[in-house]
Write a protein that binds this DNA or RNA. Structure first.
Length: 222
DNA sequence: AACTCGGGGCA
DNA sequence: TGCCCAGAGTT
């Protein structure tokens, strides 16, 4: 898919989700970092339910280090992978205090050096907390990009990110990230994507193939 | 590249 | 019930 076609597709998606913005509970970069770390493999809604009370109890890196690991585990027990995440949060807080004077660092290199913070989390923190343009490629963005044909099926996450950045103006990276996530979550879903009512179907390689297959299936069953 | 962690959401 | 998920780290 060329840049002009992608632009057209992204404009259509923007019209579908005019208010696209991932909303995690956070009041500062530190809380956003914790929230994004917790969100791995579970939805924003689940994270927000937990952080609503979590952030009342823990307000600083020191607070997370002031309790036994088991207590923190219990406080985030409703979130998947909670044991790993609890341990990572305490290690992260220790590093933020010792290496960065108590504040979450701003660079990709420093962020990904923190435990539990990978490429995706670092990009979300940079773009949402520090207003650095970034496209964080999660499973939604990856799936949508590959279905549309922006990236190849076996491209790595990093390759998908590079291809999107190359085809989208820098100042639109962050909003494009949010829009693609909404599109992937509510429309171009992993299971049962809404191809039959998709406004960008004509530009979607996989979507057209899916529709063709479903038509054939229907005629055979008749 | 494959495997693990894990409760929640959804069919 | 069973399957998948707004990932990251290890081997």
């Amino acid at each position: 898919m060329n840049a002009a076609t992608l632009r057209q597709v992204l404009n259509t998606i923007a019209e579908m989700f005019p208010d696209a913005r991932c909303e995690l509970n956070h009041r500062n970069p530190f809380e956003l970092t914790i929230a994004v770390l917790l969100s791995a493999q579970c939805t924003d809604e689940t994270v927000n339910k937990v952080t609503a009370t979590l952030f009342e109890k823990y307000r600083s890196p020191h607070d997370y280090l002031s309790v036994p690991l088991e207590e923190l585990e219990n406080d985030i027990r409703r979130i998947g992978l909670f044991r790993n995440k609890a341990a990572n949060i305490q290690k992260l807080c220790r590093m933020v205090i010792d290496l960065h004077g108590g504040d979450v660092p701003r660079t990709h290199e420093e962020l990904t050096a923190l435990p539990g913070v990978g490429r995706k989390t670092a990009n979300v923190v940079m773009s949402n907390a520090f207003d650095v343009p970034a496209i964080a490629v999660d499973t939604h963005v990856e799936r949508v990009s590959k279905r549309l044909g922006v990236a190849k099926p076996d491209d790595s996450v990093l390759e998908v990110e590079k291809k999107l950045m190359r085809r989208v103006p820098r100042e639109e990276w962050t909003i494009t990230h949010h829009r693609l996530i909404f599109f992937g979550r509510y429309h171009c879903k992993a299971q049962n994507p809404k191809c039959e009512v998709c406004p960008v179907l004509e530009h979607c390689k996989e979507g057209k193939a899916r529709m063709k297959a479903s038509l054939k299936k229907r005629s055979v069953s008749k």
